[in-house]
Simulated assay, not measured.
Amino acid sequence: MSKAAAGSNNHNGNEMNSNQIESILQSQVRPRLSRATTMLSSTSQLDLHLLTGQYSLLLVASALLASNKLTGSVLKWARGVNDRDGVRVVGQDVVTVDLASQVRYVSVLVAASRAGHGHGQAVEHLATKLRKMSSLISDFRTFSRLWGLLGIAQWALDLAYSKKTTNVENDKDGNNNHESDEDDPVVKAITWAQVAVNVVMQPVENVAFLANHDVIDLGNNKNNKVYNISVGKLWRWSSRLWAAHLMLDFARLARQRHAGSKDDGVSKRNQEQWWREFVVDAANLPLALHWSAHDGFLPDLAIGALGTIAGGVRLVRLWHDASSRQG
């Protein structure tokens, strides 16, 4: 093949690659970027992304620490293996006497190799950084709720004067928006109860957050107490009120489910929305109860998993809706 022909082929190949890249950018990358920009321009949607990221980071960090702990336990067990089994761990190596023992303890060799060369310290360092990032996101989300009473006031006005009332409260679960029928007095009563709970919860959370960051001073003593109420107690009461909000939401969902069972015209989309809200509340309720207790009862791995479910369920739907509008 001549140099001219080879050069022509290279030129055609480069042109095809360029066209393929341009096609991918136009048909896949650009629409996704546009969708993400549109979604993140909304405060509530940004909070939903942050919520999912916050708990996902905690989940990954906790999983890394659990894996590291398991590896250390396996290595510790391996070092204690009796010589009569034909295996001895020397440093970071497994020395075997016969082939049978070598096959039997191949998993020990893997664990020992992973535990060596600072692997454990590196995992702990990464997990610490992820947890700090998760905590930072949590602080940002709590800060953004300092003016949450405005959204609650709007929610109350919508409930009082609109046929369809949208729940726009900026609560801890990332704005679990839903509509309720004014025609159903039970649902309306439940929604008013949720408004009342959030009217109390939001200031309690605001005071706890600001006092926790030394923006306001709750007292003059070292325990940072006023009226014998500590910052920790304020956080717990805020979480208990959140739990009350979620339990009321379960009551609302039960009422809507009962009404829907009598209505053959309930759409598939409404059914999907009902189940989505139920799963979100079911994931959030253990978190609210955990933070309502003095010392909590959930490990970080469970907290991360539940929070990721609560955010991820709605985030997937949000991306789907954004894709449908663009399509």
Rank of each mutant, 00 (worst) to 15 (best):
V313Y: 06
D47E: 10
G174S: 02
S27G: 11
Q102I: 00
T166N: 09
A322H: 03
M133L: 06
H245M: 01
H294P: 07
I24N: 06
R145D: 00
G13Y: 12
Q92S: 15
R252F: 05
D139K: 04
L285Y: 12
Q26Y: 10
D281R: 04
G116C: 05
W274Q: 09
K3I: 04
S41W: 01
G307K: 01
R30E: 10
Y227C: 15
S8H: 05
L25K: 10
W235T: 06
Q20L: 07
S23Q: 13
L248Y: 01
F143E: 00
D300G: 08
L241V: 01
N175G: 08
S27N: 15
N17G: 00
H119E: 12
N221S: 13
L126N: 03
V207I: 13
V313E: 12
M247H: 12
T52E: 02
D47K: 02
P185R: 08
Y227D: 15
N177P: 00
D139P: 00
L241K: 05
W275L: 03
G118W: 07
V215R: 08
H290D: 15
W274P: 02
I303M: 13
G91I: 03
D249M: 11
V199F: 08
N212T: 04
V200C: 11
D98L: 01
S62K: 06
H294F: 07
A244I: 14
N220A: 14
F297M: 13
N177H: 07
Y227L: 15
W242R: 06
L149F: 03
G307A: 11
A156N: 10
A254N: 04
Q45W: 10
D83F: 04
K172F: 00
R269Q: 14
Q256S: 08
L48H: 06
N221M: 04
D181V: 02
L287C: 09
N198E: 10
L57V: 10
G260W: 05
D171C: 09
I303D: 01
T166R: 07
N284M: 15
W291S: 13
L58Y: 06
V87Y: 01
N68W: 01
S261P: 03
N167T: 04
G120P: 05
V313S: 07
V89P: 02
R104N: 09
L57C: 06
V266P: 09
V204I: 15
D83Y: 08
A243I: 05
V204M: 09
L210H: 02
S42W: 08
A254L: 13
T37I: 08
L59E: 09
Q202G: 07
R114A: 03
W77Y: 00
W274Y: 13
D300F: 02
L287D: 10
D295A: 12
G219H: 13
Y105M: 01
V186G: 00
V87D: 00
S230W: 09
V95L: 02
G120R: 06
S44T: 15
E205F: 14
A211C: 11
G53H: 05
L287P: 05
S162G: 07
N212K: 14
R84D: 14
M1Y: 11
A122P: 04
L126R: 07
R240V: 12
I24Y: 15
K76M: 04
M16A: 09
A282I: 01
N206C: 07
L248I: 11
L33K: 08
K222S: 12
L50F: 15
W319F: 08
T191Q: 02
V103W: 02
P31V: 01
T43F: 15
R257I: 10
H117A: 03
R84V: 14
W192Y: 05
